[in-house]
Design a protein around this nucleic acid. Sequence first.
DNA 1: CCTCGTTTCTACAACGTTGTAGGCAACGTT
DNA 2: AACGTTGCCTACAACGTTGTAGAAACGAGG
Lengths: 335, 335
Amino acid sequence: MRHRLKDVAERAGVSVKTVSNVVNGYVHVRPDTRARVEEAIAELNYRPNLSARHLRKGRTGVIALAVPELDIPYFAELARYVVTAAADYGWTVLIDQTGGRREQERVVASGITDHLIDGLIFSPLALTAEDLAGLDGTPMVLLGERVDHGPADRVVIDNVTAAREITDHLIKLGHRRIAAIGSQRTDEGASARLRLAGYAEALRAAGLPYDETLVAPAPAWHRADGAAAMRGLLTAGVRPDAVFCFNDTLALGALRALHEAGLRVPEDVAVVGFDDIEDGRFSIPTLSTVAPDKERIAQLAVELLAHRLDGDRAAPAKELSAPYRLEIRESTQAP
Amino acid sequence: MRHRLKDVAERAGVSVKTVSNVVNGYVHVRPDTRARVEEAIAELNYRPNLSARHLRKGRTGVIALAVPELDIPYFAELARYVVTAAADYGWTVLIDQTGGRREQERVVASGITDHLIDGLIFSPLALTAEDLAGLDGTPMVLLGERVDHGPADRVVIDNVTAAREITDHLIKLGHRRIAAIGSQRTDEGASARLRLAGYAEALRAAGLPYDETLVAPAPAWHRADGAAAMRGLLTAGVRPDAVFCFNDTLALGALRALHEAGLRVPEDVAVVGFDDIEDGRFSIPTLSTVAPDKERIAQLAVELLAHRLDGDRAAPAKELSAPYRLEIRESTQAP
DNA sequence: CCTCGTTTCTACAACGTTGTAGGCAACGTT
DNA sequence: AACGTTGCCTACAACGTTGTAGAAACGAGG
C-alpha cells in the first residue's frame, strides 16, 4: 500500500535517483521525463519516507517545543504561535510537557527526543544554568529569563520595565496601597524576581513605601494560587486598594477571592495581571494586563533556531527582546 | 559529537549487533559483556538514532494529535492528557493544529506527516466521512462524533444523554424558559446537533414547549460567539430564565454578555456549560457544567490506537464511550 | 571531424539501525 | 565418544533515501 521511490521509478521507466531528483525539484530533468515521473507519483500516491530521508540528510524537519503545561493558557497560546511560525520554515513541531519538574526538564534538554528533532524551543521553569552547561545536544532557544546567562539563544521581554509601567498605571489612577501577588524564592522564579523589581521601582519613583506585608508569594502561578494568596492577604487584615498579579491566571484567581470576600473590582480594589490570555478579555470584570507580543516571541524563537541550524553552531548566544503593550480594561479605575 | 553503535562497539570490543542487543534488552548477553557495553554507552553518552531505528523497524514511536486549535482550553486540556497517556506506551506526541479548516484537516488525515507517525488521534471539526473514506493512510482514532459512521475507531461521550441531564437539572430547579446557545448547521456541527437533541428531549419529557426563538446559533464555540449569541437573544427581547450553552467557552461569553446587560447570574438567569474547562471553576460565578472525563477519553484513544497498531488493521472500527458527570456550581440556582 | 562543455540520467555507496542466519563454545545426555 | 541443546556472539543484508561520480547523448566551437 505504501510505495517507494523504486516503485515509482519502475512505473515511470527511470532510475530511482531520477525520481528523487524530480521529488526534490532538481533542475536538470527533461520536461517529458519529469511529467512521466510526476504522473507515476500521482498514480501511486507516493509520499517520501521521512525517516529514510532524514537518516540520509541528518535533518528531521521536526523541532520540539517544551513547556511546563499545555493547559496553562499562556503556554497554549504560545504553542499555537510557535506551530504557526515553524510552519513557515517547513518544520513540524513536537510538543513536550515537562510539568515544570526539573528532572523532566533536564531529560528534555539533554535530548530525550534523541535524533528525532533538529532543535528545541524551551520554556523552562525549574532548570538551572548548570543543567544546561556542557550540553552537546541539539540547538536550543530559551524562552524567558529563567536561566541566567545560559549558553543558549534566548527570547525575553523586558519584565522589569513592563512591571514598572503597569504598576505606574495603578499609581497614576491614584492607588496608594498596591499589593503584589506572585513573588517566589529567588532561585526558582526569575520572572517573579524581575516583575517584583519593576513593581518596587515604580513605587520608589512615586515616593511610595515598599511594604513587605503587601507582597504575597505564590508557589505556582495558577488560578488557585492567586485565589489563595488573595484570601491570605485579606485574612491577614491587609486591605490594598489595588493588586498587581504577576500573571493573568493569578489575577483571575484573585478576582475570584475578592468576589467571595464581597469586594467589588474595580470599585473597591483595582486588579492588573500579566500575559494577556484570552480569559482576561471575557472575565468579569475584564482584566487590565501587560500584553507581551506572543506571536512575535514565537517568530523570534523560530528565527533564532533557524539561524543556529543553518549557521555557526558555536557562535555566541544571542538574546532578543520582544515588544509588549499595556491593555487597560475594566479591572482598573481610580479609587 | 554524536556517537553510533559502531563507536560503542569499538570501545567495548564487541560487535555492533551485540551493542544493539544490549540497548534493546536482549536476554542472551553475558553479564560482564553487558556491563562493558553499558559502560561504553555511558562514557560516550550514546543515544540511538531514531530515524535509523524506525527506518529499519517501520515504526517511529511518534503519534500525532490533530486538534482545531491549541488555545481552546478544552483541546489544551485534552492534549495534556493525550501526551500523558501516550507516554505510558513510550510514544511521543506530535501536535498538529488544523484550525478547523477542512482543507488542512484533509491534509493531516491523508498523512501530511508522511511516514513520520505511526498513528493519529484526530479531533476534526469540518471533515466529512467522504474525506476519510478510502484513506490508505495511518491508523486513526477519531474524537467526538463529527464524522458519522467513518471507517475509523472512535471515542465519544453520550452527548444526547449528557445534554438531557444538564437541561433536566435546570428544569428541576424550576426554570421554564431555557435558552440554548451553540446550535449549528447540521452538516458542520454533529456535537451541536446531539446536544440540541438532548436539550429538546428534556423539554419534551417535562412537558415544556420547544421554542425556536430560544435557540441561538453560534458559528464557532469561542467566548466571543457566546457573548454575541447572548446579546442577540437579549436584543431580540428574549428573556430566558436559564441558558444551556453547548460548551464552556460559549457559557463564559454568555456570562459576560449577561453581566453587561445588568442581569445577575444565577439570580436572574441560570447558566450551564459543557466541557468543564478550568476557567469555569474560577469564573464569577463558577460554572455548572457537564464534565466529560477527559483523562479517560485520552486513555481510550491511545488504547484504541495501540490495539490497531499491534492487531488487525482491517478489523471493524470500534467505538468506545467515555463517562461524564454533572458539576453543579454557582451559576445555577432556583429562579 | 574532433574536442569540449552541458544536459540528462544512472549506478553505487552510505546514513545507523535491527532481523536473520549462522558459528563457536560449553554443557548435558545418550 | 558422539550427539544435540543452549548460550553467546558475529557477519551480513536490508529498511528508503540522497550525494557523488561518472556515463551517455547532444550541441557548439574549432
